[in-house]
Nucleic acid binder design. Structure first.
Lengths: 207, 207
DNA sequence: ACGCTTTCGCTACGAGTCGTAGCGTAATGG
DNA sequence: CCATTACGCTACGACTCGTAGCGAAAGCGT
C-alpha cells in the first residue's frame, strides 16, 4: 500500500502484522476521537508500535487514514438479484451500510476535504477507494443489457461518459442523504431512488 | 448568526464590521492555507482583531467556518429559463461555480466531516447552508407543473419525500463529480445529468 | 556461523497551536 | 457620569507535531 517493499532486498523486513495493527488502531481511533482529535502518537500507542514506525511508513495523517478507510470499501460486491432495479437497490444498501460505520463517516469525508488542496492525495483516494468501485456500474449495466432491460451501447465514448455519470449520481446521492441530510438510507429510500434513476422525473410515480 | 445580541442590552455593542472582517479573513485563510492548517490566531491577525474576540463570538473553528462558507451559498437563485431542463442545468452550473471556489471546496467538506461526530454542528450546517437551498427544488417543480412538464402532486407526503430525494440527488451528484471524481462540471455534463434525471436510465439517449 | 543491512522501540527535542485568564481601555445606554 | 459590555493585549500550561539519534532485533547472503 504505502511503500512497496523492494523484494530481494536485504535487511530486516517490515512487520506485516504492524501494518494491520496500525490500520485497525487508526479505525478505532477514528471511532472514538474522530478525525480532528486523532493524533499519530495515539494511534501508535493503540497499535503497540513506536511513533517513529508510523512516520517511516506513512507520510502523514492523510495517507494513513486513506489506507485505513480503503479497507472498509473493499468488500462491495454486486450479486445478481434478477433485475437492474434490484441490483441497484442492493448496492445502494451495501454502500449505506459502510457509511453507517463511524470510522467511514468521519474518515472518508475528512480526507476528501483535505484532498481539495492536495492533488497527490486526491489521486490516492481515487486509486484506492473510488476507482475500484466503478466496475459495479459496468457489471450492472452489462448484466441489464443481457437481460434486455437496457439498450446495447453504440458509441464507446458516450458509454464511458454515461458510466461515470451514473457512478457520480449513485455515490453522490447516497453520501449526501447519509452525511449531509443525515436521514436514513433504508429500503424505502433505496426504492424511491432507484425508481427515479431508472424512470426519471417525468414518468408517473408508479406506486 | 453566532450569538444573537440581546437587543436593548446595555454596554458596548459588538462591532458588526469585525464580524464581516473575520468571516472574510476566514475565507481568505481557507484559500491560502486550507482547513487543516487554518488557525484561529492567524484568522484574527488577518482580520485585525484580537484572538480573544474570535473566541468570544464563535465556539471554535467548526462554527466559524460554517458561517464563513454559508455566505457563499446565499446567492443561489432560480431564474426562469423556460423549461424544467434548462432550469436544472442552470442551477447545476451555479452550484458548480460555487464549488469551484477554493474556500468553498475545502471549507464545506471539512465541516461536513466534522459534523459526523457533532449533532449540533450538523444542525447548524443544515440550517444555514443546506435547508435554504431546498426552495429551489420546490420552485422548480411548481414551475414545471404549471408548464405541464410534470404531473401535479397527489399525496402531500410523497410530494415531500420526492423533493428531498431530488435535492440529495442533484446536490450529491454535483459534489461528487466536482470534489471526488474531480472532473469539470461544465455544460456538457450538466446536460447529460439533466437528461438522466428527467428521462431515467431506461429511455434511449436522445442525441 | 558471521557480517551486512534495514527496521524497530525508545527518548528527547524545538517549534507551533490551543483555549483561557487577567488587565486596562474603549464605547455604548440610562 | 456611571454601570455594563466589548475590545486589544499579554502571558500561560498543556498538548501535538515531525525529526534525530541511539542500541537492539531480525532478516539475507556467503
Amino acid at each position: 500500500m504505502q511503500s512497496r517493499t523492494p523484494v530481494g532486498r536485504a535487511g530486516r523486513p517490515r512487520s506485516a502484522a504492524a501494518d494491520t495493527a496500525i490500520l485497525a488502531a487508526t479505525r478505532q481511533a477514528l471511532v472514538e476521537l474522530g478525525w480532528s482529535k486523532l493524533t499519530l502518537g495515539d494511534v501508535a500507542t493503540r497499535a503497540g508500535v513506536a511513533k517513529t514506525t508510523l512516520y517511516r511508513r506513512w507520510a502523514g495523517k492523510n495517507e494513513l487514514v486513506v489506507d485505513a478507510v480503503a479497507e472498509l470499501f473493499a468488500e462491495l460486491e454486486l450479486p445478481d438479484r434478477g433485475s437492474l432495479a434490484a441490483d441497484i437497490e442492493g448496492v445502494v444498501l451495501q454502500f449505506a451500510a459502510i457509511l453507517a460505520l463511524p470510522e467511514a463517516r468521519s474518515g472518508l469525508m475528512a480526507v476528501v476535504a483535505e484532498s481539495t488542496r492536495d492533488e497527490a492525495l486526491r489521486a490516492r483516494i481515487r486509486a484506492s477507494i473510488v476507482e475500484p468501485q466503478k466496475h459495479l456500474v459496468l457489471e450492472g449495466r452489462t448484466r441489464a443489457q443481457t437481460r434486455g432491460e437496457l439498450p446495447p451501447e453504440t458509441d464507446p465514448d458516450s458509454s464511458a461518459r454515461t458510466a461515470e455519470l451514473i457512478f457520480d449520481v449513485i455515490a453522490g446521492a447516497v453520501v449526501h442523504r447519509a452525511l449531509v441530510s443525515s436521514e436514513p438510507v433504508d429500503m424505502d429510500w433505496s426504492r424511491d431512488f432507484t425508481r427515479l434513476l431508472l424512470n426519471g422525473l417525468t414518468s408517473p410515480p408508479t406506486t
